[in-house]
Design a protein around this nucleic acid. Sequence first.
RNA 1: GGGUCGUUAGCUCAGUCUGGCAGAGCAGGGGCCUUUUAAGCCCAGGGCCACAGGUUCGAAUCCUGUACGACCCA
Length: 503
Amino acid sequence: MELSELERQRAEKAARLQEAGVAPYPHRSHRTHTTVQAIAAYEAAVAADAAAPRVTVAGRVVSMRDMGRLMFAHIEDSSDRLQLFIRSNELGEDAFTLAKRTIDLGDFVEASGTMVRTRTGEISVQTETVVMLAKAITPLPIPKEVEDESGAITRFSAFADVEERYRQRYADLAVNREVRDIFRVRSRMITALRAWLDNHDYLEVETPILQPIYGGAAARPFTTYHNQLKQNLYLRISFELYLKRLLVGMYERVYEIGRDFRNEGVSYKHNPEFTQLEFYCAYTDLFGIMETVEQMLAYAAEATLGSRQITFGENTVDLTPPFRRVTLRDAIRQATDIDYVAFPTSDSLRQEMRQRGFNAASDASWGHLVDTLLGEAEPDLIQPTFVHDYPVEISPLAKQKPDDPTHVERFEMFIGGMEMGNAFTELNDPFEQEQRFMQQGRAYEAGDEEAQPMDEDYLQAMMFGMPPNGGFGLGIDRLAMLFTDHRSIRDVLLYPHLRQRDQ
RNA sequence: GGGUCGUUAGCUCAGUCUGGCAGAGCAGGGGCCUUUUAAGCCCAGGGCCACAGGUUCGAAUCCUGUACGACCCA
C-alpha cells in the first residue's frame, strides 16, 4: 500500500498507540447503548428523577473541538450522533493526551461514562474512558454541518463528486447520511412487495440465472461459457419463461425477485444489471393483473412511506387504485396525433412519422417504430397508467385480443414518466406460441438483434398444458427511484456500473 | 453513436475569458485555550493543475487528441 502524506501521519498514530500498549484494531467492542438508546436512557432517568445512566457507546468520530484540557467530539452510529464531553479531569493526564494525539475524524472509538447535559444543553457522555476501536487511515471527507431549529442540516463542502461517490460508495455512505436512507427505503419497499405477495398465496421461487437459451424480453444478452460442459450460457434477460413453466407444474401463483442482465446502453434509467420482480397467476388475465398490481403498489407505498401520495420531483404521484387505463393507440394519438393503425407497414409509418418531424430509424421494424412513438408519450405519463393493447409483432408471449388478432392483451405500466412494468394475458397455446417464435426468428434474420429465440423446452412445457394465466414484471430500481424521489437509477443502486478507470 | 460542460491540495472550490511566482476555506502538522458545536487565536506545511502532444521566450490558462464523468439528443 502506498500511503499519502495524510495517511502516513495516521498510520504513525496507530503505531503510537501500539507503543503505548493499546491495540489500534482491538477484537471486540463493549457497547451497551446505541447513541439513540443512550439519549433515551438519560431522558428516562431525568423524567424519573433517577441517577444519570452509565453507558458505553461506540461509533465513528465525525467532529472534534479541542479546547486544551477539554475536548468535545461527536460520534455517529447507525442510529444517530452523540456528543462526547471529554476532560482530563475524568481521563487523567496521560490518557487524555494519548487520546488527543491519536484520535482523528473518521476513527471508530468507544466511550464509557455518565450521561450529562452540557452547559449549552446538549445531552452528552461525560467520558471517563475512550478506546480506539478501529483507526481510520484514509481521511474521510466528513463535512461540517449545522442544524437549525427546524432540524434542517446545512452541509459545508460535503463530499459531492458524483463519480467518486459512486466509485467509492462506502465513503459516500459513511459521510452522507441521507444516502444511507435511500437504501433503507429501497429495502423496506422490497420487503413490502414480498410481504404482499406472500400474503396473497404467491410462492417465492428461484430460477436459473445461467440459461442455455435466453428469452422472455426483447434485449441482447451477456454471453458466457461453461468450461467443463463446453457450452455457451446466457445471463438471463428475464425470468418469464422459467416462471411460467412452473404453472405447468401446478403451482398457481409464483414470483421471483432477482437480477436481470441486459447487454445494452447505460443511462439514467438503465444499468446492465437491474432488479426485477415478476409474478404469474393462474386463472386470471390482464385485467385481473391490473387490479393485483394496483393493490400491491398501494400497499407497498403505504407500508414503505406511510402514504399513497408520493412526491416525485415537482409532481405528486398518487398510487391509490384504480390506475388510469388507456390504449396504446389512444396514448400515442394524444401525444403525437398519429394513429399508427392507419399505417400498417413500416414504410408507411416511417414516412408519416418523418413528415410530422419525429425521428424514425431507417432500419426500424414497424413494431419498433410504434415503440418509438410510445417514447413520445412516456414523459407525460406521470400518474400511474396502464397503457394496454399492444401490436402482436412486438409481443410474442402474449395472447391475442379475441376481437382483434393484430393486437394482444398486454399492458405496460408507467409512473413518473417512466416505464415501470409489463404484463400480459399469457399465451398458453403451444401451436400459436411456436408460430410466434418462428416469426421472431424471421425478425432476427432480418437484423433485429432483440428478437426472441425459439425455446423448444418451453414449448414442450406448454404442450403438457399450461393453465390460462396473467403475469407481470416490475422494475424494482425504477420503483425505488419513485419511492426515494431520485432521477437517476445510479442513485438507487449501491454499486452502479461505471466504466473502468486506469489504476 | 452525436453535442455541451466538467476534471486544480484529502474535501469543497477560485484562478482559464484577457498566457507571466499555484490560491482560499475546511481537513492534517506544531503551539495556546476546562462548556464547544462550521469553536477561536498564532505558526509552518501540503500540487503529475486528469493524461499525451502542439503553439509560445513562457501554458493550469490557447489548440489537437485521449481517458473518465455529468447533462442533453439518438
